[in-house]
Design a binder for these strands. Structure first.
Lengths: 248, 248
DNA sequence: GTATTTTTGGTTTTTTTGACTATAATTAGG
DNA sequence: CCTAATTATAGTCAAAAAAACCAAAAATAC
C-alpha cells in the first residue's frame, strides 16, 4: 500500500498509475519416447513458495540485462543437458491475480509470464537432478494439477505442437536422429489423432518427396518384419519449406 | 546505476538482481480498402518523448489491475470506433535496450511490449482524431520508419496475417459485410502473392463449399459485367473449422 | 512348423487440381 | 447508337493426387 502505488489517487489530471512488473519465463518442453510411444512434457517440483511442492514448468524470473530468450535458455540449461534444441516463444500470460505473490507484495507488483515452447530428443536429453529437486517427464495426458496457471499454459503448448506438426517438419526435432517410418507415423497419430491417411499411403507419399534418407539399418521391435531406420535430410527438405506438409 | 541494481556484485550467494519492468501493449491493426485494393495498417503520431513526432502503433502502458488484453482494447477504443473486431496476441518483445527510457531511467527499469494483432473492416472503422494527434491508415508497403522496434513488430504482424489468411477464414473479418468474389480473390493475391489457382478455379471451388451466400445484389465497378455481392455464413462454415482452407 | 505381426511394395478407383474455352452483362469511346 | 474492351460467370477436360485396397516379405510367438 505504500510508495509509488499510492499515486493512483494523488492527482486526477495525471495518468492513472502504471503497474510494476516482474517478468518470468516458463518453458513447455515436449519430447516423445518412441519405445513407449508417449508424448511427454518436462515438469519440475517447486522448491519455494508460492506453490512449494507443486509440479510446474521450469521457469525463472528475468534478470537485469538479460533478454527473455536468454532467460529461457538459462533455466533450460539448468534442468537439462541436450545436444539439439528447438525453442520459440509461445504466449504471454499477464493478467492480474495470476500469481499469489502479487497479493502478498505490498508494492502491488504484478507477475507476468512469457512462456516458451521447446522440443528435445528424449534419448539425448539428460535431466539434471540436483539434490532434492524433483524433475521428471510426464505423459501429457497424465499431467497433474500444476502451480500457477501452468495447466492453461500446457493447453497452449499442446495446441502449438499440433499446429506445428501439421505445418512444419518439427517432428524431426523430437524424434531420434534415426527413426522408423512407424515411429514417425505413430507420433503423428498420437498428437494429431488418426484422422489422416493410412500407414501405407503415408509411407509412399513421404518417400516420394525424397527428404528421408534410408540408412539401410534394420531394427526389429517385437514381432513383425524389421523396419528400416531413416534420417531426415534438411537440405533435401529445403524446397518444401514454407509449403504445406502434403504427407499427413 | 544507483540503488538495487548494484546488488548484482554484492553477494555471490544470493540470486542476481531481477529486472523491474513496465509493460506496454501495442496494436498492429490491419484493414483492407476494397475500392483501392490496398492492405492498410493503422499508425498514430507519438505525442510524447521518446520518439515524439514519429509514427508508431497505437500503444499504452499497462495500468494497475488491468489485464494485457484490457489494455489492448482500451488503447484501441481510444483511437478507433468499430462494430466488429478481431484481436489476438501477437508476440512479446522484451530484450534490454529496446526502449530509450531504459537508459534515461536511473532505476534501470526495462520496457517490455506485448503486441496484439487486430483486424477491422475499413468502412466500419471510424478513426478518432483528437486535436493535434495524427492518426492514419498506411498501405503496409509504404510504412515509414517507426518509433521503437515497431518496424520489426510490423514484420511479425504481416507474417501472422499471411498465415492466418491461409489457415483460417479471417479474410471475412477485414472484408466488408458484403463483398464480391473479386474482392476476396484480390485480398488473397495482394497478401499472399499470386501463387495459387486462377480466378475461375478459385470461384468454383469456393462456391461448391457452400458457406458463401449469394445476396443476388449486383454491383458495377467500372467496366465489365456487374458482380454479385456475397455474405460469409459462419454457421455453414462450421464443418470446415480446423481444416485447411482448400480454396486458395 | 505354423500362425501372427509388422514392414514393404504395389494396384485401382475416386477426387481434386490446373489449364482452358465460351458466354453474359456491363462500360468506354467514337 | 454501335462496336470494342472489360469483367463476371459457367463449364469442360486432361493430369495429378488422394484414398481405398491388396499381397508378399521377414521377422517373432507359441
Amino acid at each position: 500500500m505504500a510508495g509509488r502505488s499510492q499515486r493512483k489517487t494523488a492527482d486526477p489530471v495525471t495518468s492513472p498509475p502504471l503497474a510494476d512488473f516482474k517478468v518470468g519465463v516458463d518453458n513447455v518442453i515436449f519430447s516423445v519416447d518412441t519405445a513407449q510411444n508417449r508424448l511427454l512434457v518436462l515438469l519440475v517440483m517447486r522448491q519455494e513458495d508460492p506453490f512449494l511442492g507443486h509440479w510446474s514448468f521450469p521457469g525463472t524470473l528475468v534478470q537485469q540485462g538479460e533478454s527473455l530468450e536468454d532467460a529461457a535458455y538459462r533455466i533450460l540449461s539448468e534442468k537439462i543437458r541436450v545436444r539439439n534444441l528447438y525453442l520459440e516463444q509461445l504466449y504471454t500470460f499477464g493478467g492480474p491475480d495470476r500469481d499469489p505473490r502479487e497479493a502478498a507484495d505490498s508494492y502491488g507488483v504484478r507477475y507476468l509470464s512469457v512462456s516458451y515452447f521447446a522440443l528435445v530428443r528424449f534419448a539425448e536429453a539428460e535431466l539434471i537432478a540436483d539434490g532434492v529437486s524433483g524433475i521428471a517427464w510426464y505423459p501429457v495426458d497424465q499431467v497433474p494439477q500444476l502451480a500457477f496457471d501452468h495447466n492453461r499454459i500446457l493447453e497452449y503448448g499442446h495446441r502449438r505442437l499440433r499446429n506445428k506438426l501439421e505445418y512444419s517438419p518439427v517432428a524431426f526435432e523430437v524424434l531420434p536422429e534415426l527413426f522408423t517410418l512407424s515411429d514417425l507415423y505413430q507420433l503423428y497419430t498420437t498428437v494429431l489423432g488418426d484422422g489422416f491417411s493410412d500407414y501405407s499411403n503415408f509411407r509412399s507419399r513421404l518417400l516420394k518427396l525424397g527428404f528421408l534418407e534410408d540408412t539401410g539399418i534394420k531394427v526389429s521391435r517385437g514381432a513383425g518384419r524389421p523396419a528400416s531406420l531413416y534420417r531426415f535430410d534438411a537440405e533435401a527438405f529445403a524446397p518444401f519449406k514454407d509449403k504445406p506438409l502434403v504427407f499427413i
